[in-house]
Amino acid sequence: MSVNRRDFLKLAGVTGCSLLAGAPRRSEAAMTSIEFYGMLIDTTKCIGCRSCEEACNEQNGLPKPEVSFSSESVFETKRDTSPGAFTVLNRFSNGKNPDNPVFVRRQCLHCCQPACASACLTRAMQKTVEGPVIYNKDRCMGCRYCMIACPFDIPKFEYSSPLPYIRKCIFCYDRLKAGERPACVEACPEGASIFGTRRELLEIARTRIYENPDRYVHRIYGEHEVGGTGTMYLSAVPFEELGFRNDVGTTPYPEHTTGFLYGVPLVFVLWPSILIGLSYLAENGNKERNHEEEE
C-alpha cells in the first residue's frame, strides 16, 4: 500500500484526534451480526487419549515433546499450556465416581470480547469476525500486557528466545477459512470436542443437560463467563473442581477499562480550558495585588 502525502496527513490527523480522544470501543466483531464459531468440549466424553494435543502439535509445527503423546505419565502433574503446547489435557479425580477420572482440555477460550485484544496496543491480538482470537506476530512488541489481562492466563511468552513471540491457540484460523474444522476437533475420536457456531453449540449443550439432567452439572462454562467465550465446557462435576476459575465474573473484560477511556476525552476538553482559565485568573490576581502594593 502506498501512502501519499495527503493520505498520510489525513491519517495523522485522524490518529491525532482519536488518540487524544482515545475513544473506547468494543471489539468490532461483537457488534456485527455474524455468528462466531466456537467449540464445545464435553468433559464427560473425553477419554484422555491426547489425540487433540498431538494434532495441535502437528498443525502448528510445534517442537516434539520429550514424552510421547501416547504416554499417560503426563497426567501425574497438572500442566499448563506453553509456547510449545497450545492445548494440554489434565486429569482430575472425580468426586462422584472415583473410578472415572475427568479429563479437561485447556487452551484459549476465544472470548467473545477478549481482554487480550483490548489490551493490545498494536492490535497484534485480534478478535476475528469468524470468532477466533488470532495473533499477528509482525505487530507484537512483546509488552506482555495481554498476559496480564487474560483472565485464563492463555497467552504464553517465549522467554528463552532473543526474538520472542506470544504463542497461543488461534483456533486453526487458516483451516477455518478453508472450511475445515480445527485440528483438535478433527482428531477427537470420541466427539468430546465439537465444532459449530456458538449458537448451535449452546443449543446442543442445553439439550444434553436437559436430556441427561443427572449426568451434567447444569451449567455451561463459557456461556456467560467474561461475557461469553467461544470455547465452552460441559462437565459432570462442579467446574471449580476441574481448575476452572469461578471469580472471573460475567462482565466482558474490555468493559473494565471503558469507564476510564470514556474519561479521557473529558479530561482532554476540560483540563486545558480550566487551566487556561486558572492561569488567567492567577495572573490578574497577581496584577491586582501588585497594584495594591504600589498604592
Binding site: 482519536s18 488518540l19 470501543r25 485484544a117 483490548s118 489490551a119 505487530r139 500486557y145
Partner: peptide
C-alpha cells in the same frame, strides 16, 4: 504503524 490499538489503555 497501521496498528492502532485504540481500545488499549497501554496505547494511550
Amino acid at each position: 504503524g497501521n496498528a492502532f490499538g485504540l481500545s488499549s489503555v497501554l496505547f494511550l
